[in-house]
Every structure is written in C-alpha cells, then in structure tokens.
Simulated scan of single mutants.
Amino acid sequence: MTTDTAATEIIVDIPPTSWTGRTDGHASEHLRWHQAIRAYDPDVAGSGSVLIGFASDEGVRRNKGRPGAAAGPDALRGALASMALPSTLALEDAGTIAVADADLESGQARLGRAVAAALDSGRLPVVLGGGHEVAFGTYSGVAATRLRRTRPRLGILNLDAHFDLRDEPVPSSGTPFRQILEAERAAGSSCRYDIVGISQPSNTTVLFETAHRLGVHYLLDEECGPTDLGIVDAFIADLLDSVDLLYLTIDLDVLPAAVAPGVSAPAAYGVPLEVIQRICDQAAVSGKLAAVDVAELNPSLDIDARTARTAARLIHRIVTRHRPATADDR
C-alpha cells in the first residue's frame, strides 16, 4: 500500500546512516536493533516506530545550562544499536534535524512537520533530543496531525525535575510547556499538562504558582519512590482516563544523578528508574500514545555511557510494548 508522499515525507538535515552493532546471527531469534532498522520510506504506509533526531542545545544555551545535548541523537542511536529485540518489529530511522546558527525556532517548526508526517503515515515518532526545547517541536507535530482532529483531548506527560514554564521573552529549554499552553489557548483548544518528578529545590515559588494558575498536575520527586507506586499509578491512570491522545516527553534529569549523570542539571534526588520505566510501560500500552521524545542527554558529561544506555532502555521498552493510537480507536 502506498501513501501520499507529499504528506508523509520527512525532511531532515542529516540523512540516516547505516547502523552497526553486535551480530550473533541473522535469524529472527538473533535480531538486534541495528539489524532490524531501515531508512524511513514515505512511499510505504507504515506501522511501527520511526526515529527522528533533533540535534539542538540552543535552548539549553539560552537557559544558561551546559551545552552538549546536540550530540544526543547519535549517542542514543549508538546505545540502541546492539539491544536485542524480543520479536520482529517495524523500525525506521528518518535521520536528524539539526539546529544551526542559533535558529531554534526554524528547527522546532521543521521537527513539527516531521512528527506530523510520521504520525500521518501510521508510525510512532520517537524523537531523539537534543535539549528539552525539543518539546515544542514534537508538540507542534502532534497538534497538526489528522489524529488530533479525531482525538481532540490531548494530554502531555512530562517526566522531569522541572516545570519548564518560564515566562521569558526568548524561547529556551525552560519555556516549552508555557509555549504549548499558550498555543493551545490561541487555537481555541486546550490540553492537560501533567508532570512526574518535580524537584522542589529546582523550581522557584513563582514556577509553582504559575503551575497552579495554569492547572498543571504534578507529583514531586519525593512522592515517586518504590513505596509510592499506588500514588504514581493513580496519577497516571487519572491522566489517561481524561485524554484521547498522549504525548510523552522524558527529560533525563528526572532520574537520579547516579543513573543519569550525563545531563545539564543532574538530580540530587530524582525518581528511581524502576518507577520511570513503569510509567513508560503504562503509556506505551494505553492505546493513546501518539509521540515520545527523550531530552537532555549530554554525552560529553556522561560516565561510561550510563545515561545513554538508560535512555535507550526506556526507548526500547516503549517501542517494543507500544499499542498504536488510531483514529477510530477511542
């Protein structure tokens, strides 16, 4: 089956390259990511997942963070390459959108078009950041897709130590969710914005007041330990019951610094990996997950690729367990 290529073409700055990794054999029982993944083909109606890189740390720089996240997409691909697949899956790589000359806004717009094209072609877009400025680009694509017209109640689940609701004249990695809520209001629509992992010492009183005023739901990191699974499960269930469509965004600084040292702002406390993985599993099997991105991996600050490997495992779990959201699956 073919598709409308004009509607599903993904335009990137850096085309996908061949993946390499460990090879134990070529039969299905030996399959790893690097053996299964193919270049994205807009002429073929698809299913499965497509990776889209977003090489940017301009938003981090504007937010006075430590740059280096632009190298995140390649590091994530490298960490995924040798992971063993439990079954044969449709996996594609569309290449990478690169933010150049500090032109973040253009890069976000191009990412939005790429995400919309992936969704309209029937794939799950998995965006590899990049700083958390990636979020506004991913959201723009979800908002523009045909799926949003049939599933209007959009939910955003952010796994993050920070609200990213700053009121700044210039967009950055600290502003994307305020931008999203403003864009929804301007469009005459609305979305629900929920966050798991907020660190009180990392967010000023102004940001908490802003979150309350905007109706943001959140759990503090200290409410998300292994003994708090009932609280976390109820929080995620309430979100999923309230929306038709879900965009999941994972800022790796939600994890403890010992697990994810390679980020601009490592967490002194953080949410345990087993809790974050549990949340990702719930989102993946919900039948409502439309897009996911992973943000803030900074390979230059990583230790033994610890952060990259952790992020890759989360991506792997989501992709291998994902139940697609479709226009008539309500």
Rank of each mutant, 00 (worst) to 15 (best):
V243Q: 05
I195V: 15
L157H: 11
V285L: 08
D103L: 01
G130V: 11
L240C: 02
E274C: 12
L245T: 01
D120L: 02
L80I: 12
L240V: 06
G68P: 02
G129Q: 11
V142Q: 06
P73R: 02
P324E: 02
D13T: 07
V142S: 09
A258T: 15
F54P: 00
Y218L: 02
R278A: 14
L245G: 01
D238K: 11
T175L: 00
T23F: 09
A234S: 13
L229F: 04
T88S: 12
E92W: 13
A258M: 14
F136E: 09
D194R: 14
A267M: 08
M1P: 09
I318V: 15
S300G: 13
A295G: 13
L207A: 05
V216Y: 04
I14W: 03
V243S: 03
A118R: 10
E58C: 03
P86R: 09
I10R: 08
P272A: 00
V275D: 00
G155I: 04
L289M: 05
L220P: 00
S49H: 12
N298M: 10
S190V: 06
R306S: 13
A258L: 15
R192Q: 13
D328G: 06
R317L: 14
Y269C: 11
P324V: 02
P226Q: 04
L157V: 11
N158T: 14
